[in-house]
Design a protein around this nucleic acid. Structure first.
Length: 549
RNA sequence: GCCCCCGUAGCUCAGUUGGAUAGAGCGUCGGACUUCUAAUCCGCAGGUCGCAGGUUCGACUCCUGCCGGGGGCGCCA
């Protein structure tokens, strides 16, 4: 069943069915209609075109459905038939490095998937796989030692992590003695030297404090409890090697321990292995990713593992998944999926960079979003008290950035454009928020409590009322559709259509000046339902819905 | 060289897994404000769905081959 332009819904299964039954599609459609009693649900049914069944729902049926939906905290969205344990791997910034636009998509898309999954009743485990281990930490720790702990902590707490990293890098490249110390420090770190670990923890602590600040501004659910960096899998790495060896998958190639996987070749068309352990004995990220898979399956009992990671990682994640399956760890129905996304581009259609050519810092970008939103709010609603304007500016600015990221198909690159994302018209965050605020304004003016209309069955008379009612009842489908494909943009498209349906209704159907009280109540019920679906839907995307703006 | 992703209106994007006449927003042009927030709404114009084949009742959608853009292809993560 799908929406139709010629009726409320169209059923086209009879076309496919006709072939196997050896009858004409129109006959099959007629048989179906004869067999099912739709008199309660539909006011009209017809066989149309090559064999479509067009359905027109009875107004009473639609009204009752809406009354049921608005009596429900989930607004008619069905719970998942089988609650699953869903592990979502997202955000993943690096310790001692600043978050930049590259982390925006993973964080925002992952957050939306987490919220939607929880909403329908899955057990969701958030995992922030931060880069907190590996060779760079040798030089970072030595640089920290050079600066002195207090000075280093001060510098890091300011948030200028990039400068700290750069200084370490410069010394590493220029100073052989420093380079030796850094390498020695890596060995001590991996060997579990207590003093080295203490210094390492200092770096991690300062960085995660900074991550928390960014997450707080951004308004995502990630907290310190969700941190599960590469270091967390350190002890499991020898186990990974042992298990792969036991399974007979491990081979030695050019001094490295590797697993060959079918279907992957290198430049010279030779089989391409996944390197588990480097020639120098060190483990690389394939090893920790495999440990991670084991951990998620065996410790967390994951049914679904989602990796919200950029599209360029497709091959690597594919290899990890294939090895995990080949080794017998990843067994259906458990599954591992790469929720891939494209890049954020600048106006020049290249990867978004700052004027200086470096990555755009995420905190600076968010600050600019809020600043721009504040200017827009002040201009368009000067009456709003300054304190409230500041709050609204944050909600609108952050909402605009998130919505711009979420509203297009995630696999595609998208062009970052301030003017477009902050526009109050079109498929934007501010537009949806505006429609919500408009509804709240009606209730403020009416002086009635919103919850009075929960469970109230509207009586649609005008086409705009009916269209809005139909749109409201599609929330359930929209949420499940977005969730199944891990595509938040599907929910965005729905919310935009709903907002547009509301706009048309608002234009044509006076609410407070309605002819009589029953029409007014019916319309207020539609208003409340719309505001709730908008707020709930935006909430699933991690976007707030101000009551005034 | 091999593999992956993308290509839809001037611009930015949707298109409900193969259904009827491909839709929005912006921009252009023309309308609607003594406002339930015009931060909006209505209308006009705009298309060889990158190209060429194939599959079938039917293809933007699936298959093959090209063209163009981006990315990946063993000891960084």
């Amino acid at each position: 069943m799908r929406p139709s332009e010629r009726a409320d819904a169209q059923v086209n299964g009879s076309l496919a069915l006709a072939k196997s039954l050896g009858r004409s599609p129109r006959d099959v459609a007629a048989m179906v209609l004869a067999e099912i009693d739709l008199s309660e649900m539909c006011s009209a049914t017809e066989v149309a075109g090559p064999g479509f069944i067009n359905l027109t729902f009875a107004d009473g049926f639609l009204a009752a459905e809406l009354a049921a939906a608005t009596s429900d905290a989930r607004l008619g969205v069905r719970a998942a038939p089988v609650p699953l344990t869903v592990v979502v791997d997202y955000s993943a910034p690096n310790v001692a490095k600043e978050m930049h636009v590259g982390h925006l998509r993973s964080t925002v898309i992952g957050d939306a998937i987490v919220r939607m999954s929880s909403f329908v009743g899955h057990r969701v485990v958030r995992e922030n796989h931060i880069g907190d281990w590996g060779t760079p930490f040798g030089m970072l720790i030595e640089h920290l030692v050079d600066l002195g702990e207090d000075a280093a902590a001060r510098e890091l707490s300011v948030g200028d992590l990039d400068a700290f990293y750069r200084q370490a890098r410069v010394k590493f490249d220029a100073d052989d003695a420093f380079k030796d110390r850094a390498r020695h420090r890596v060995v001590m770190l991996q060997g579990g030297d207590a003093e080295t670990l203490r210094l390492w923890r200092l770096l991690v602590a300062e960085s995660t404090r900074y991550f928390d600040r960014v997450y707080s501004v951004l308004g995502v659910l990630l907290t310190g409890d969700d941190l599960r960096g590469e270091s967390a899998y350190n002890d499991l790495l020898p186990e990974v090697v042992r298990r792969l060896d036991d399974a007979g998958l491990l081979q030695t190639d050019d001094g490295a321990e590797v697993v060959f996987v079918d279907g992957y070749v290198n430049r010279d068309n030779e089989p391409l292995p996944l390197i588990i352990r480097k020639g120098d004995g060190g483990y690389n990220y394939a090893a920790s990713d495999l440990a991670c898979v084991i951990d998620r399956l065996e410790r967390l009992g994951a049914d679904v593992m989602l990796y919200v990671v950029g599209a360029p990682q497709a091959q690597h994640l594919g290899m990890v998944r294939d090895v995990a399956a080949k080794a017998g760890w990843l067994v259906a129905p458990a599954r591992m999926e790469h929720v891939a996304f494209g890049s954020v581009l600048g106006e020049d259609r290249k990867m978004l960079k700052s004027r200086a050519g470096s990555a755009v810092k995420l905190d600076a970008l968010l600050a600019e979003a809020i600043e721009r939103a504040l200017a827009a709010v002040r201009e368009k609603n000067p009456e709003l008290p300054a304190e409230l304007a500041a709050v609204v500016a944050r909600q609108v600015g952050i909402g605009a950035v998130k919505y711009a990221d979420l509203s297009t198909d995630r696999i595609k690159d998208y062009v970052f454009d301030w003017d477009r994302m902050l526009a109050f018209e079109g498929n934007t965050g501010p537009y949806l928020q505006y429609q919500h605020a408009r509804i709240c304004s009606i209730f403020r003016r009416a002086g009635v409590a919103r919850d009075r209309y929960r469970g109230h069955a509207p009586s649609p008379a005008e086409p705009e009322e009916r269209a809005l009612l139909l749109a409201l009842l599609q929330f359930d489908t929209a949420v499940h559709d977005a969730l199944e494909r891990h595509s938040p943009h599907r929910l965005c498209t729905y919310l935009y259509d709903l907002a547009a349906a509301f706009s048309a209704f608002y234009e044509r159907c006076p609410v407070l000046r309605a002819a009589d009280e029953s029409v007014r109540d019916s319309r207020l019920a539609l208003c409340d339902a719309t505001a709730r679906v908008l707020e709930c839907g935006l909430g699933l995307l991690g976007i707030e819905s101000p009551e005034q703006m």
